[in-house]
Computed example of a mutant assay.
Amino acid sequence: MRPRVISALVVANLSRQARDRVGLFFMVVMPFVTIMFVGLAMGGAGSEKIPVAVVAQDSDPTAAAVLRELAASPDLEVRRTDSAEEVRADVRRGRVAAGLVITPGSTEFDLVLSQTSGSGMAARSEIDVAVGEVSAVQEAIRAAITAGATPAQAEEYVRAAQAESADVAVRGTGGGDGEPTGFAYTAPANLLLFTFINSMAVAAALVESRRIGMIRRTLAAPVRESTVLFGEALSRLLVAAAQSLLIIVVSALVFGVRWGDPLGVTLVVALFCLVATGAAMLVGALVANPSQAPAIGPPLGIVLGMLGGCLWPKEVAGEPLTTIGYLFPHSWAMDALLALTRPGAGIGTVWVEAAVLAGMAAVALAVAVAVFRRRALRTA
């Protein structure tokens, strides 16, 4: 390969991209507008406690036990409310993420939340844990009484068992429980969404290079096809990497997003950029007109973003669509980036996701290179 030819191709491509004001707006401004508004709708900064409204009577032992468990959660801010109507109004107006109505003497509680709220889904997870803890204790006490213990002895046995199991920790290995909310969720989601969409959109520049004869003139010189391929691919990769780096830096400085282990984040983002580069090269080789690439790429990127949890939490989409989403890179990259935000997570936490992304990147680039060589280089 000839470094001068590669650098000339990269400079020409990036210079043409820098003159595209509409493209620059969608790369520099639009991601942060989306992060801000969607992040605020999902509860703002992910490090803040999630507000939850509760209607309960302190005289009810079950209600008191649930309240203690909720208050012990480091992720919830429990707000006492007087009526179920007030709870529903607070959830509807966005004052709280979720509400819990505990009817005295009843074993069924009313949970109020918006299915489209990421913070509401996170609150539900914490509420389920609290109610499950209380239910398990009550079942254990009833079992001890059935076995012949007095109520006082049964409670003592259960307290002793809880004390013995207090040091046992459960470590999650997948998405779902304890996922970030607010900006901590929308920043990685929009990194994947806009990196892929803008990579697909800049495929138009590749089509333009073919149209104006830049690739043909390059091949007329003593330049190998592999050099042209590498130069064009590197141009798309640099655009994707610049988009990702910009979102990471600005979201950390402006929105206080904590991305987690730098090595793990770098690996996941780099692999996703390679996937986006392969997709951009493939689109650039297949379409015949520069206006076709922006018409195909962004809609495809939005659909894949929907399936991958980039527009809303996967719980909202449901299990069938979530399962389909794992056929594409967005779901794997989203799971990896969210996992890396958890305390103690490192590159070893996301090795499965990284391996899948590496495989997808290899396939995307191999197909793109084959199609580009046949349709763009041989016919240039």
Rank of each mutant, 00 (worst) to 15 (best):
I102W: 09
R159S: 09
A279G: 14
T116C: 01
E85I: 05
M306N: 08
E164Q: 11
L286I: 11
P343H: 15
T62H: 06
G256Q: 13
V239G: 01
V303Q: 11
P298H: 11
V283N: 03
T116I: 06
S47H: 13
A220S: 15
G43S: 14
G132V: 00
A184I: 03
N190M: 10
D128T: 12
S244E: 06
D110Q: 12
D177T: 15
F183V: 05
S226Y: 01
L337C: 12
F328L: 09
A144F: 06
V96P: 01
F32V: 01
S117W: 01
L365R: 03
G284N: 11
G172K: 10
R142P: 03
E77V: 05
E85G: 15
A361H: 01
A189G: 13
Q292E: 12
L113K: 01
A368K: 02
L263W: 14
G308E: 09
G39L: 01
P320W: 10
S135L: 08
S59N: 12
C273Y: 02
L40V: 11
V316S: 11
S59D: 14
D110S: 13
P151T: 11
G346W: 05
L206N: 08
A233M: 14
I302C: 05
P299R: 14
L337I: 07
L70H: 08
A355M: 13
G297H: 02
I35A: 12
T266H: 11
A368R: 02
V202P: 00
M1E: 04
S117H: 04
M1P: 03
V207K: 04
V202Y: 13
A339N: 03
I50A: 07
T322R: 08
P222C: 10
D75C: 04
H330S: 07
A45G: 15
V268M: 07
S125C: 13
E156G: 14
R258T: 15
A152E: 15
F32L: 04
G132K: 05
A143C: 08
T81L: 02
K314C: 11
V207H: 05
D20F: 02
V250G: 07
E353S: 10
V316M: 14
S106K: 15
L100K: 08
S59E: 15
R79E: 03
Q115V: 06
L300F: 11
T218Q: 08
A333D: 06
V33I: 15
I296H: 03
T62E: 05
G182Y: 03
G213Q: 07
I302N: 06
P299A: 14
F25W: 14
V170F: 00
L327C: 08
T349G: 09
I102E: 10
W332A: 07
G264R: 07
V55G: 10
A354W: 00
A293F: 01
E126Y: 09
R93F: 01
A366K: 07
T62S: 14
A147M: 07
T173M: 13
L229S: 02
L357D: 03
